[in-house]
Write a protein that binds this DNA or RNA. Sequence first.
RNA 1: GGCGGCGUAGCCAAGUGGUAAGGCAGAGGUCUGCAAAACCUCUAUUCCCCAGUUCGAGUCUGGGCGCCGCCUCCA
Length: 462
Amino acid sequence: MQLQIYNTLKREKELFVPRIPGKVSMYLCGPTVYNRIHLGNARTFVLGDTIRRILSFLGYDVTYVQNFTDVDDKIIVRAAELNITVDELVEQEIKNYFEDAKALGILPADKHPRVTAHIGDIIAFIGDLIAGGFAYVGGGDVFYDVQKFPAYGQLSGQKLDDLVMGSRVEAGEAKRHPADFALWKGAKPGEPFWDSPWGKGRPGWHIECSAMVRAELGGHIDIHAGGMDLQFPHHENELAQSEALCSGEPFARYWVHGAFLNVNDGKMSKSQGNFFILSDVLKRYDGNIVRFFLQSAHYRKPLSFDATSLDSATVALNRLRNACGALEHVLTALNAPQAAGEMLNLDQYEARFKSALADDFNTAEAWGVLFELARDANAALALKGIANAELALSLMQRLAGVLGVELTVDRSLDEEIEALIARREEARFARDYWTADNIRVLLAELGIELLDTPQGVRWKLK
RNA sequence: GGCGGCGUAGCCAAGUGGUAAGGCAGAGGUCUGCAAAACCUCUAUUCCCCAGUUCGAGUCUGGGCGCCGCCUCCA
């Protein structure tokens, strides 16, 4: 099945056709590094990583870029609050981001450009816009002239006239049109600044992505992704900037926007105070569980989060882990495939898994397929055994791995523990259940749970 | 005011024309020295409401109700 992607620009699912056959260039708007990301932010970053992994799984050679916005009002304010420099804050928060990302199974992008490392590219980009008649200098700032770009509003479905009504126009601004936005902001006292042809200052928010895409991926990309809230104005502005300089071919062929994580039916956000800092959540829940939870709904639909969400996700994921553990156990306990057992039609699960993902990255449906595989494997195991247990196990782990979730099975214990387990087996065999149960309790205190099965004792870490 | 989205069992959530995936919770059963895991059965005659199109609609069209998001920094 061929990949279909919902393109925000077209408002419909489209067959995915990259610019260059077999290759995909993808850009995701990354975090503004002023504090730790929350669970809602994580949803989008997991989405980007998931799409990237799925594209690879489907055979594409992917180049994935995710930026860091490291100069911004919030960063300046936060650094002042903490009484540290902007650089110190930025370095710390980037480090924190990677720590969080790693816990969630988010692979490092091929490139993580920072705005401050691309000031030259940004200045050049603005220069090109001015030269092309799409931007003008006003006061110490440079603005994008939306009226020079007739297609403005195409991504968000907004009309310029309608935008005027809702926009807040600050008095004294040198804008020609209320929807014009700053490409370069003149320096204010105490803020970071760089020299430019228009005086000292710093980049506006939107220009960074246009410039970094051009610098890192060339003027055109296949997929541009980000959270729903970036659709307007950020991506609309970005599109206007980039496409002003590349008439004809589109800047991004597919725009992908992820829905929010909801709390009490409302968007989780800093300003509403209903957010959960990811690093706090990760103290209580394994990153695999959080990632699985975030993938449990289709990315374009809001996902509800409440106090029970991660607990039920834990139980659910344990179901898959237990199935893997059971398969692993029969393989090691019997030390040979059960030739007489049932032969599961594994290709069927993989095909369904793949077509779910090829249908606009439907991870929720894909997980459903893995649960069915787990159930069928467990059922077969309980009856006649499975002839292709080894393949079933590796398939389940491989497909979960496509989604970035590890279904690991613990394989080794130290000798002391092994000896205890053996002693308990002897005791059980001798019907000395008092000793056997004491050993079980002892091991439980060490975090090891024993499971008695027809194929002998199995253990797992609690 | 402009633009957009959502409404499927107690909860989470797939499904965009062919007769309701999956997970959690719950009930009963099987297995079991115990425990755990697992399996089986049951839990939406029905997808917010009304009308329409169709042989057939959760899925398409029109209207209504409710909720949410963006338009200001925001994943």
